[in-house]
Design a protein around this nucleic acid. Sequence first.
DNA 1: GATTGCATCGTACGGCGTACGAGTCAATTG
DNA 2: CAATTGACTCGTACGCCGTACGATGCAATC
Lengths: 237, 237
Amino acid sequence: MAAKHSDTRGKRSQRQYVPVQSAQPPHADPPLSLERIVTTAVELLDAEGVDGLKMRRLADRLGAGAMSLYWHVGSKEEVFDLALDLVIEYSGRPQVFEPEDWRDEAVHLLQDWRASMLRHPWSASLLSRRALGPNILNRLELLGKILSRAGVADADLNVAIWSLWNYVMGATITRASFDLSEDDRTAAQQRITRLSEHYPTIERSRLLLDSDWDGAFRKGLDFLLDGLAPGQKSCSR
Amino acid sequence: MAAKHSDTRGKRSQRQYVPVQSAQPPHADPPLSLERIVTTAVELLDAEGVDGLKMRRLADRLGAGAMSLYWHVGSKEEVFDLALDLVIEYSGRPQVFEPEDWRDEAVHLLQDWRASMLRHPWSASLLSRRALGPNILNRLELLGKILSRAGVADADLNVAIWSLWNYVMGATITRASFDLSEDDRTAAQQRITRLSEHYPTIERSRLLLDSDWDGAFRKGLDFLLDGLAPGQKSCSR
DNA sequence: GATTGCATCGTACGGCGTACGAGTCAATTG
DNA sequence: CAATTGACTCGTACGCCGTACGATGCAATC
């Protein structure tokens, strides 16, 4: 009754995934569904970027009317949240692992997290939206388990998880926004060298010109893990 | 001539800051200027958030017509870039410092960076926009100098700067989006405990409920600095 | 056959960014 | 002093957006 303003219309109940197949579709196209909407939204986002996702175009791709989406989704914002959560799905590592493999396990999970998002660069720009979908929570839970097994005390888990999350998200968003095209790179080159009297150190480090993103990510990650989890692979390596 | 599509109109030349004061303003309000536009944009962003910044409202606040802004700015995107750069201004540390103080210096610069952005939470959501304004470059240059003085080799500077940048930006964006209000916190509480069978570790760590953001930031930062810069404050502390 | 509830969609509204071109006024030029 | 120029302002209008609303259609149920 006094619902905010969203649920005035019905909405597909979030109970089970009942594969109910209706007798025949109302049109030639398959019927709408949350899954279809979200996967198509990801396609559209991949193709056109964040600004390219418009409800009308999404509906077009689905062979549906624009307003039909709102039976399933509630708002465009919700589409973003669901799409972001979808690309973060994680199936875990295939093989079982030894107890001492926690570190490889953690690195794999975090590298894969970043890689998943970089496969869909638009996802990095949605990071500021406080979405905690099931897939994100799954990853966090798994990360917590790994750290726990590595000997991190419960009291320190909070800090460890957040530090790693922060680092991974920062690395993702930076890479997604600063991985310049060839043209951009030469432009940046010129700009920096033109201002080189003001920014000599930046120029010397070739910060924007040939960064080894993945290597840098891995290295910083190692340092963080060294500090956050005790023992094993001491920092005197 | 073959300019993209933006500079078809004139635009305040970016030469010097000539404090040319015209004889009398065309209206009672002070005349428009890039500075006035950007500072007012920051005010509006502080008050209304990212979605609250509309060209018409910005113009209203300035006592001007909406289209007058476009003489000075070129597009709304540019306003965002300029506003982001403005809040990142850094005047460096007041006192001079000893050569061995590099670590305090670095921590101060990075903590202040994060604090500056948290003072304007909208700025975190603009991080994905590849803006390298002068103030951001200044900070990066200063950070590079500090690390250089700490003994980081030129070849490692790139990695060190990016690792720190990534961590700081991640911590900022996370804190800005996940620092929940009291209501949100209890809602999250309920949600997590309801799903506690799926996420026992997250629940145990009280991840969203009482995180010590600033402490966690500081701790992770220390670990990164331990790894990135050799010597001093060894990891056996 | 009537009712109910799920699902779809056409229309329309208000608001957005901004292109365009006409206006104003100070400084410059002859 | 008149004419011209160029820096700056702004009213209007266009196209597009998200989505509220209400009218449908259709399957299952009574």
